[in-house]
Design a protein around this nucleic acid. Structure first.
Lengths: 245, 245
DNA sequence: CGGCATCTTGAGTTGGGTCAATGGTCGTGG
DNA sequence: CCACGACCATTGACCCAACTCAAGATGCCG
């Protein structure tokens, strides 16, 4: 299912008020206080909810840009394509995180976003926020910050891909996931992976066999307990040491 | 020399008017027309010029954020650091390009920018632009676009690092450089590299020896003529084919 | 139950890393 | 002017992490 259709036709009729309770990390999802009220009360923005089934696309390569997307619940992957058909996952997004910044430059998206489980996202009509005038200054600054954060995160991935070994990449990936779950009030030790081994590999610049071997290796070293998609982190410190040599 | 000092003390006294003639690509450097005038006439912004000698830092890891930087002339590299001292160059910036977006989130920079040759940059006080009110809407949208463009470019680098072989990476890097020179009115075939082999390697996720071997290989294949930092592209099509297999 | 996608593991190969030696270039100071 | 040292680049020999190919195992769904 495609967001271009969704935005026009399938707006959740019950979503007249913004429920941000799903994302604990409100700092990321939406700014606190006045700006939030402003969005809802005055301009009735950010009340489009899109319900996605696993496998649905929020937008895809070439889609028109309608706005940014905030994940309310679920898990989203972003895929980029090379000319010759190769695919790379440039990011995974979970509740409270915002994606879709790639569409601003040309009013078209340059990558594809796919739900990895049943998910709910809110569309944030950036252009309306830009037009809102002085009272939205605080809000606009928040979006600059979001984009800046995205750029810094990209730098992290670039360093991971450019100067870390496979072992270190997987350790860093798992620790990052663990931290994000912890930030949302979940256990940082029991991870339920929403993506396949191949998708992890695509994100970390490795083949599926290498990912699988590394999971086995970490398990043998007592760092993890691996049961298909259920990962239990047994030794956080050990994983951290792997990264810092 | 550090920008924190420069901004306070070494503002170019002759820079009372904005000279954007150095960057042909005005679309990137500054928006056209009214917004530009607005910046100069009304608020007297973007008239801080910083003159850098090769090796000078514009800002470094931990510096306070004063604004974005537009390259007027010269060549700037951006370095990121891992805990254990490893370094990766996440980008190179040339005339007309804007860098420094990493500092917005926390009002501190998270990476270091270094001039690779004598350079001139303008500081763009982003916060003042944010505070400017409705008339700056067009201008603000321009900065959203700049950041979006940066994010898309980051995706490109991630794909390069994550799913391309060494040969392809170097070819893609050279073609990108060639294009950017062409955009600025220079020959796309005669490149003068401002960075060392080690810096290319750091950016492309390879060791210096590999970069050197690839240059030799490309030369033997008749794709390039390599004379230390002077690279002549003999077969653009061949380089493009390398990337698309 | 069969069919399909996913994951694991083994065996063999290779691209790029490491280590080491050499040569070139540039700037400084005697 | 040349000598020296610092930095940069190239090339060879060797090695290892990650890739490819292949064979099964596991799990899920109709």
């Amino acid at each position: 299912m495609d967001a271009e259709v969704l935005v026009k036709a399938k707006i959740d009729a019950n979503a007249s008020q913004l429920d941000c309770s799903a994302c604990n990390n409100q700092d990321i999802c939406l700014p606190a206080g006045a700006s939030l009220d402003l969005l809802i009360d005055r301009d009735n923005l950010i009340n489009f909810r899109i319900h996605l089934k696993s496998g649905d696309r929020v937008y895809h390569y070439g889609s028109n840009f309608h706005g940014l997307y905030a994940v309310k619940s679920g898990f989203i992957k972003i895929e980029n394509y090379l000319d010759n058909g190769r695919v790379q996952i440039t990011g995974f997004y979970m509740s409270g995180e915002v994606f879709g910044f790639d569409g601003i430059v040309a009013d078209k998206h340059t990558c594809t976003s796919v739900a990895l489980e049943d998910s709910v996202v809110c569309i944030i009509p950036l252009d309306q926020i830009e037009h809102m005038g002085n009272e939205a200054e605080h809000l606009r600054h928040h979006f600059y910050k979001l984009m800046s954060r995205e750029i810094i995160h990209n730098h992290t991935i670039m360093m991971l891909l450019g100067s870390m070994a496979g072992e270190e990449r997987l350790a860093a990936f798992l620790l990052n996931l663990s931290q994000r779950l912890y930030d949302r009030g979940y256990s940082p030790y029991n991870l339920v992976l929403r993506m396949t081994r191949a998708e992890i590999g695509s994100h970390l610049g490795m083949k599926i066999e290498s990912v699988s071997r590394l999971f086995s290796k970490f398990q043998n070293q007592g760092l993890l307990e691996v049961d298909s998609k259920n990962i239990r982190i047994l030794n956080v410190h050990g994983l951290r040491e792997l990264i810092s040599q």
